[in-house]
């Protein structure tokens, strides 16, 4: 599904290499986790895959179902099935959450040549999915993420993911700023979306989230590369021993 090959990325504004040859394949139906210390390039990888400005790909490729996504605009990637759950969801004053969701859902449908969702159908679906994430009607009416608590923002990300039904879900530190109950709620939302045809890339610092979202594969990223890949036990190893041993091993 998602194929990243020898991906090299630097910041556009300064000559600073962040990703130094990332190789990664996420198969449909699988959950891959990426762990790693601060500054290892995890968030950069998520931004580069979703098309944020400010990064320059100097080498390598990333494809989704064989299609090169790096040349696409962010909205084209979204229509192709890429979804990034932001580490820091952006507040957009003045745009109602419902308007935003409906505009996004219909923009993607339109881009894929599908029929737009009617207002009543949309309302029905969004209410159902919001209920599962304990997002109340009031939150749906409010401007996007404005005045939301940290937990509400992350739940709102998962709601968007549920509505947009992407093929490839990238979760960038979705656990940060969440208490145990909120994390459970978010994890349940993610697990509900696990599906044969859908891949997940879960970026996290801590093993804790992976107790709830059980990964199939765990990668350790350091200094712009994936230095080790293993099963769920690798996350436990990090939890117990930290990154130091792994980093030393890699050198």
């Amino acid at each position: 599904m998602l194929n990243i090959t020898n991906l090299h990325v630097q910041l556009e504004e300064e000559d600073k290499q962040i990703l130094k040859g990332v190789n990664l394949t996420v198969e449909a139906g699988k959950v891959h986790a990426i762990m790693g210390p601060n500054g290892s390039g995890k968030s950069t990888l998520s931004y580069v895959l979703s098309g944020k400005d400010g990064y320059e790909v100097t080498e390598g490729s990333a494809t989704l179902d064989g299609e090169d996504i790096l040349d696409m605009e962010p909205e084209e990637r979204a229509a192709a099935g890429v979804f990034l759950a932001f580490q820091y969801p952006v507040e957009i004053p003045g745009v109602g959450n419902m308007t935003f969701l409906r505009t996004a859902v219909n923009a993607q449908r339109k881009a894929r040549g599908e029929e737009e969702m009617s207002a009543s159908e949309f309302l029905k679906v969004v209410r159902e999915k919001a209920k599962e994430l304990k997002i109340d009607a009031e939150m749906l009416k409010r401007p996007v993420n404005v005045g939301f608590s940290g937990g509400e923002k992350k739940r709102n990300e998962i709601l968007q993911m549920a509505m947009l039904e992407p093929k490839m879900c990238i979760l960038d530190e979705t656990d940060s700023g969440l208490d145990v109950d909120a994390m459970k709620l978010v994890a349940d939302g993610v697990n509900a979306l696990r599906d044969e045809g859908r891949g997940f890339l879960v970026i996290t610092h801590y093993q804790r989230l992976l107790d709830h979202i059980k990964p199939d594969v765990v990668h350790i990223m350091a200094d712009g590369r994936i230095i080790k890949t293993g099963g769920p036990e690798l996350a436990l190893e990090v939890e117990n021993n930290g990154y130091a041993d792994l980093l030393a091993e890699a050198v």
């Binding site: 979703s50 098309g51 944020k52 400005d53 605009e73 962010p74 909205e75 990637r77 979204a78 229509a79 979804f83 990034l84 932001f86 969801p89 952006v90 507040e91 957009i92 004053p93 003045g94 745009v95 308007t99 935003f100 505009t103 996004a104 859902v105 923009a107 993607q108 881009a111 401007p143 968007q160 947009l164």
Partner: peptide, 24 residues
């Protein structure tokens, strides 16, 4: 720019996304 990228990453094209932020 952050808001614009957020909207675009959800599939809303740059033009309509800019309009949405302008109305906002």
């Amino acid at each position: 720019e952050e808001g614009l990228f957020y909207l675009r990453s959800r599939g809303i094209e740059e033009g309509p996304a800019t309009d949405l932020l302008t109305i906002a």
